[in-house]
Structures are given as structure tokens and as C-alpha cells.
């Protein structure tokens, strides 16, 4: 890859933006229930229809299949009603008041005691802090919510785009951080979390979303590894200068 070439840089930027948006999308959908307007738009646009034929991996395909069906099947559904139904499911899975079907917190999966606000919460807080960020509801809500972690990935990628257009030498470190955060945190518990969603949800929408997310983050780590290899020489060159 000729990284200095305008075309490939442009292509890379486009790739980064795609990833940024997907992480943001997943983060938002696992963090909050969606409004009727947003759902309506998603259903009308049905971006999953074309993705269906892309053989990224089994999970991803299953996810796009389910979501495409969901969009098709709900074209006529009253958006307010749909939003209400999915909101109820969102609460049942991730908030309560009954016992959560799929707790969305990293420490519940990776911590010794399966509680909220544990060692992992502090680790994640440190990751955010390194990038000058903190959670909006500090101390009130665990930092290691899957939705927030996915959005943090989106933020990192956004910073990568900025690097690409500015100080390119900082891009490499950013890519390492992305890789680290994805492999050590999101991928360390995400698959277990997504499995719980898949097995416990009564809505194809959340099942599809969980499959899609699982498939995507798995492939994205490979993507990042390849990208790192491509950028390594450039980084070393920049260092030598």
C-alpha cells in the first residue's frame, strides 16, 4: 500500500469513517433504546439488505439476515408501538427492574465477583482518561458499559481520522490503542455478553444486533492488525526522522 498516495489515504479515511460510524451505531443501540423516528428511518433505509451478501463471518451474516428481515417485516408497524416494544425489551435485557437477562457491564463477566464497579471499571476509566474523556454520569454509572465502550472505540477512530489529516505519526499509536481496547476489553467479554442477548431476547432485532456486533468486532480486530502492519514502516520512518 502506498500510504503517501492520495487515493489510498482517501480510501483509508473512508474505511475509518465506516468503522467509526458502525461502532457509534452499535454503541448507541446497546446504550439506549431507540426513538420511533430513528427506528423508522432504519427500517426504511434497511442498510442490511445489501450487507446480507457480504460473507464477513457467520455471526455477521446471521445478524444482517435477522436485521434485514426485521426491517422488512416492520415496514408497516406503527413506529411508536415498535419503539415502545423494543424499549421494554431493552429494559428487560439491560436495565431491569427484574434480574437482568444480559448485564451490559464488563466487570460482570471478567471480574472475580461478577459485580458492577469493580477492577475492570477502573481499568476502563483509565483508558478513557488517557484520551481526556470520562463518562457523563461519573461514579453513578459503571464506566465499562458495553455501549460506552463501543462509543469509545468510535471516538478513537475519529481521532485516527484527525491524525490521518494532521500528524500522521500519531496514527500508529492510536491504532495500537484501538487494538488494545478491542482485544483486551470489548472482545474479552463482548462474545459472552452477545451470547446472553442472543439466548435471552424475545426480539429478532436485538438478536440480530448482537450477532452483527459480535461478527463485526471479531473481524475488526483482524482489520486493525493488518492496518498496523501496513503502518509500521511509516511509523518507524517517522521515528527515525
Amino acid at each position: 500500500m502506498h500510504i503517501e498516495g492520495n487515493n489510498s489515504l482517501k480510501q483509508l479515511e473512508e474505511e475509518l469513517i465506516i468503522r467509526k460510524n458502525i461502532y457509534n451505531f452499535l454503541g448507541a443501540y446497546f446504550y439506549n433504546p431507540q426513538s420511533a423516528e430513528e427506528l423508522k428511518k432504519l427500517i426504511e433505509e434497511n442498510p442490511f439488505e445489501e450487507l446480507k451478501n457480504i460473507h464477513l463471518n457467520e455471526y455477521f451474516m446471521k445478524g444482517t439476515d435477522l436485521l434485514e428481515e426485521f426491517c422488512k417485516n416492520n415496514l408497516e408497524t406503527e413506529p411508536q408501538q415498535l419503539s415502545k416494544r423494543l424499549k421494554e425489551e431493552f429494559y428487560r435485557l439491560f436495565i431491569g427492574p427484574e434480574r437482568l437477562k444480559a448485564p451490559p457491564y464488563e466487570s460482570v463477566y471478567l471480574g472475580k465477583d461478577k459485580i458492577v464497579f469493580d477492577v475492570q471499571t477502573l481499568q476502563i476509566r483509565d483508558c478513557y482518561r488517557c484520551w481526556g474523556l470520562e463518562v457523563e454520569k461519573k461514579y453513578q454509572e459503571p464506566d465499562d458499559h458495553i455501549g460506552i465502550e463501543l462509543q469509545f472505540m468510535s471516538y478513537l477512530i475519529d481521532q485516527a481520522v484527525l491524525s490521518l489529516n494532521g500528524k500522521k505519526e500519531t496514527l500508529y499509536e492510536n491504532l495500537l490503542d484501538q487494538q488494545y481496547f478491542l482485544s483486551q476489553h470489548i472482545l474479552a467479554f463482548g462474545p459472552d455478553f452477545f451470547q446472553l442477548v442472543i439466548h435471552n431476547t424475545q426480539e429478532d432485532f436485538y438478536q440480530g444486533l448482537a450477532f452483527l456486533a459480535h461478527g463485526f468486532i471479531k473481524e475488526d480486530l483482524n482489520y486493525l492488525r493488518q492496518l498496523q502492519k501496513e503502518w509500521e514502516p511509516y511509523f518507524k520512518m517517522a521515528q527515525a526522522i
Binding site: N21, I22, F25, P47, F48, E50, L51, I54
Partner: peptide
């Protein structure tokens, strides 16, 4: 296809 998802 991905750009479309990205846009949405």
C-alpha cells in the same frame, strides 16, 4: 454496502 450502513 458498508457505506450505506455507515451513512445510516
Amino acid at each position: 454496502s458498508f457505506l450505506k450502513l455507515s451513512a445510516v
